[in-house]
Design a protein around this nucleic acid. Structure first.
Lengths: 143, 143
DNA sequence: TTATTTGGTTATCAAATGATAAGTAAGAGG
DNA sequence: CCTCTTACTTATCATTTGATAACCAAATAA
């Protein structure tokens, strides 16, 4: 097996994934928030409730910056902070109802672009896609 | 076929791809250039020679900003600009030898992390990966 | 009880990025 | 020849981001 060839394939593959996810998610974020803030919201949306440190790890930013961005999101009424009853240093963060609406709209729009993209596929195609994603996620893109 | 399930799978899949490419490419860029500049160099490396407008399209930035970043890369002696002999408005950009060295080092380092990641795989596993990438790239992550 | 560590905030500063306006020079179309 | 368009540059400005230092309060360890 030619591992160099496989590596080249990986390079081109991840470029494609990045490009297509860019196309799918283009313009779904409202003007009122920055790209980083949108990413944080996405992060919260898929794994709420989260703590600031968890967001911090996923986003690869420094705590002070995470804290700042969270405050901004809080000011914009998109998230809510609760303090943990057991460990009062910890904060637990979730989307506010306004935030839920925003992210719901975003995901719906991404979903509909996705449906467009797969609209002409047969059931076998779709099952093939599913299997292929499973394989790659388990064997190559595991964490 | 449940398309919503497939969509969820896609969301989680692309998150994984992003995370793993982050890990593979972490710290390969020298301190002397910014993230954006590194991305531009990657772009040039895989499809040189390129014109500023082509880079501009791929990078989703505005022409003035692209131009600025290219000048900076040029000042750092990482790229070279030639003007097209046919159409003198156009510029053709390639890596300088210093730029080649830099990107070569970067790709080698990414490659070695990739090899680590696949080191325990059988030939069948690798062929499976290859097929899976082909399928996804052709059917879902096409441009 | 007294450190020390953990989880987080606030303030501040430099640097990077994004966006706009205005300009130049070469090619294309009339 | 005279416009118009294309490809790109320069200058400038506001905003975002990244990084650092200093701080606080709760939890933990000594």
């Amino acid at each position: 097996m030619d591992k160099d060839m496989l590596f080249n394939k990986l390079v081109s593959f991840s470029a494609s994934v990045h490009r297509v996810t860019y196309e799918l998610t283009k313009d779904v974020k409202p003007e009122s928030i920055t790209q980083v803030q949108y990413k944080i919201l996405e992060n919260i949306a898929v794994s709420q409730p989260v703590t600031p440190s968890e967001i911090n790890d996923c986003m690869q930013m420094s705590m002070p910056n995470t804290s700042r961005e969270l405050s901004k999101l809080s000011e914009k009424n998109l998230i809510e902070k609760f303090s943990d009853s057991k460990d009062k240093r910890k904060q637990s963060i979730r989307l506010s109802s306004e935030g839920e609406v925003l992210m719901d709209k975003a995901f719906k729009s991404i979903n509909s672009r996705f449906l467009e993209r797969i609209q002409n596929m047969t059931n076998e195609d779709l099952e093939e896609l599913e299997r292929a994603m499973d394989i790659l996620q388990n064997k190559l893109f595991y964490s």
